[in-house]
Design a protein around this nucleic acid. Structure first.
Lengths: 148, 148
DNA sequence: ATGAGTGCAAAGGCTTTGCATTAGG
DNA sequence: CCTAATGCAAAGCCTTTGCACTCAT
């Protein structure tokens, strides 16, 4: 699991935005800060709640920009809304536990040995089917303690 | 991997629909047949194309009914549309390869030993976080041969 | 006959976009 | 100054819903 300080992240984000000719504005900084503070992927409503004063349209637009910059990843759990989190090269590789009752999402990490075995196996079956694997995505679906 | 004949499936579907007080109508039969014929999850447009004469609203409604009956599963890959496939107790447990370029989705299966190890590990970490695991979801994200 | 199922069209809800205004470099 | 970024409101798009008609029991 990688570890980045607050300022580390901001510097990295600023650089990556610059690469694609985008500025690191205050609105984008707020979004990054909110995502960094949460240890789980957030929905737009959640982001807007934490990043007060930010317009909904700006949230959508900035998240798209940040996604293009490789800083943010958009994930879709089940139904409902899309969720956003910082990319794994900032947060470290992890997976998600999704509550099938209330939709809550939490981060979860697996032992490296398991990840390696899994990646090797997946790459093999993918190749056999003519796919070039980039990465995998793994979710635990279950019921959280609040809903049980 | 389970193996069900065409008539096996229809009988099973009919039974499960009956359990929740729903009929096995012609429209629903067409949908099930279309999904059974495809070896991959289909989007609504794809289903409508194959099941000609079926209204869009009926497709949505029937797929919801079939989902409630435990016959169909709705999955969300990345962006775009929701996709539907027959439940795993009909098709057998499997995963999906998603092309990040064109959105194509294909089924893929892992060795049982890998699945077991994975499930054991996931159940353990989930429990530690207060989650009761129901099942897991695993996707390979990459580039298909058509897009490479 | 009688309620479930269907089709069509309209409405919903998350997301995107147009346009005038503001701000960063 | 000058282009990018922002806010507000309107439009889009997949999906859901209302309503009248049809079909099976």
């Amino acid at each position: 699991m990688k570890h980045h300080s607050h300022t580390d992240i901001e510097h990295l984000v600023s650089t990556r935005l610059g690469v694609i000719g985008q500025r690191f504005t205050s609105g984008r900084r707020v979004i990054v800060d909110v995502l960094a503070a949460a240890q789980r992927p957030l929905s737009i409503p959640e982001i807007l709640e934490d990043a007060q004063g930010l317009a909904q349209s700006s949230a959508y637009r900035n998240l798209t920009v940040l996604e293009n910059a490789g800083v943010v990843v958009r994930i879709i759990t089940t139904d409902e809304w899309a969720r956003y989190e910082l990319s794994e090269d900032i947060t470290g590789h992890h997976h998600h536990m999704v509550c099938s009752e209330c939709g809550a999402v939490e981060d979860v990490r697996l032992p490296d040995t398991m990840e390696h075995k899994l990646d090797a196996e997946l790459a093999a079956v993918a190749k056999k089917a003519g796919f070039t694997m980039a990465h995998h995505r793994l979710d635990v679906v279950g019921v959280c303690k609040a809903c049980r």
